[in-house]
Computed example of a mutant assay.
Amino acid sequence: MTASKEEVLDRQVDGRPAPLLEARHLTRVFGHGKTAVRAVDDVSFTLGRQEVVTIVGESGSGKSTLARMVLRLLDPTSGTIHLDGRDVTRLRGKALRTYWQEVQAVFQDPFSSFNQFFTVRRLLRRSLRLTGATTDEAGEALIAQALEHVGLTPAEVLDKWPHQLSGGQRQRVMIARALMLRPRLLVADEATSMLDASLRANILNVLTDARQAYDMTILFITHDIGQACYVSDRVLVMCQGKLVEQGPVDEVIFSPRHDYTRRLLADVPRLHAVS
């Protein structure tokens, strides 16, 4: 059973509200014996209500594997995941489908996430079954509200096929589909990496605005520490499956403690004044 917002806020840990999500000692091993690879190695972290937390690291650091475990698309080899204090690590069946309503995702490639034989209208209407909308009018209102939030109009996209949309429009539709379910946690896994630079900041603004509008926590996954600086309250830095540094964004960016974090920051482009 999902706890009410009042029950969640009443829970205290060391005098503070309990986290929305807590990952404890998550480990994921692929393969066996000498060929085994520890993609995620004993990682623990929390996500607070309405926080934007970014996991940053290079390709192969384990960040996407960690995101898939949080989404319950991949079982951890060991460790646990707790949502509002409930252990959700081994959910199956109806309980897992309920979890997927509370925890939604926006992936790197929206094109592969859509059924190419469905119009946008049909794609979004199929998601309405999880929203509890009882009438067509209520469902259409949810669709229009979500599209408006991401900067699209129903007339602009609903009767189009996915291939007729631009990359930015497809990503916005993907975000709208997630927002319709009013999730408590949105996991955005490299959600801007396939977009032109001119579109990235716009999509990042859409996501961060949704935090307030939908009372939502965001877990943002990226290889770009510059984007982490732009959107985050806190940053978690992963390297070779391990969490090597974490803290408030200003602390991590301006006073990094780990050499790997310093290397990531050194790769961020800087603008220099021209004399």
Rank of each mutant, 00 (worst) to 15 (best):
Ala210Leu: 06
Asp14Cys: 11
Met180Val: 03
Asp10Met: 12
Leu142Asp: 03
Gln108Pro: 11
Lys242Asp: 05
Ser275Glu: 15
Pro162Glu: 13
Thr131Phe: 03
Lys242Asn: 08
His25Cys: 10
Ser166His: 11
Ser61Cys: 00
Ser44Pro: 06
Leu271Asn: 03
Arg200Gly: 05
His258Leu: 04
Thr222Gln: 06
Leu128Phe: 02
Thr217Arg: 04
Leu204Trp: 03
Leu165Asn: 13
Arg92His: 14
Ala210Arg: 04
Glu7Ser: 03
Ala155Thr: 07
Arg200Pro: 04
Pro183Ala: 03
Lys34Ala: 15
Asp196Ile: 08
Leu195Ile: 05
Val40Thr: 07
Leu128His: 00
Leu9Phe: 06
Thr208Tyr: 06
Trp100Val: 11
Phe107Ile: 12
Gly168His: 11
Leu91Ser: 13
Leu130Ala: 14
Thr119Tyr: 10
Leu152Thr: 00
Arg211Leu: 09
Arg97Tyr: 07
Ala228Gln: 09
Val52Ser: 12
Ser166Arg: 14
Gly167Asp: 11
Arg11Tyr: 02
His258Asn: 10
Glu7Cys: 00
Val274Cys: 10
Ile225Gly: 14
Val88Arg: 07
Lys34Met: 12
Arg182Trp: 00
Phe117Gln: 14
Leu74Ala: 14
Ala210Tyr: 05
Ala36Leu: 10
Leu204Ala: 01
Glu6Cys: 03
Val53Lys: 10
Gln116Glu: 15
Asp233Gln: 07
Leu26Pro: 10
Arg200Ser: 06
Asp42Arg: 12
Arg68Glu: 12
Leu124Ile: 01
Val29Pro: 02
Leu195Trp: 10
Ala191Cys: 10
Thr65Val: 08
Gly48Trp: 15
